[in-house]
């Protein structure tokens, strides 16, 4: 997992996004234990309070859970992880379509591009 930030938007939101990606990419697999708040904060070179805030947000989303005194774990809810992945995919596709629209391509042309040069 790599932490790349800009200073222009709230750090905790960027942390939420990075950790969310790590979970859907299964860098932290379903049900696995996460490093401690302090460890994660040091990895990201951020304040432990900011990391805590990001983890609380992920917990509210249901993507991680706290086991009393034992630390934090990735959810075992496969469906939720799949849904999160779908949501992220939707955002990326919409962004792509908007960008293509902005340079004058219709949806059909955009799809054609995606099929012919996609992945290359």
């Amino acid at each position: 997992m790599e932490f790349n930030f800009n200073n222009e938007s709230p750090i905790y939101i960027q942390l939420v996004e990075t950790l969310m990606l790590a979970i859907v990419k299964e860098e932290y697999p379903i049900g696995s234990k996460l490093p401690s708040v302090r460890e994660l904060a040091l990895m990201a070179k951020v304040n432990p309070n900011t990391m805590q805030k990001a983890l609380t947000e992920l917990e509210e989303m249901g993507l991680i859970y706290t086991e009393r005194t034992n630390g934090k774990y990735v959810t075992e809810d496969k469906k939720l992880i799949k849904e999160t992945k779908d949501k992220l995919a939707k955002e990326i596709v919409n962004k792509y379509i908007t960008s293509m629209n902005n340079i004058g391509f219709t949806k059909e042309e955009t799809l054609f591009y995606l099929q012919t040069i996609g992945g290359k």
Partner: peptide, 25 residues
């Protein structure tokens, strides 16, 4: 990146104190 709160000081006066992420937002 490591700050919780910022305190702006200028000409001997505190101009602003705020949560860093809230200020960015």
């Amino acid at each position: 990146r490591i700050l919780d709160n910022v305190i702006f000081i200028d000409k001997g006066k505190i101009i602003l104190t705020e949560d860093a992420d809230k200020l960015r937002e």
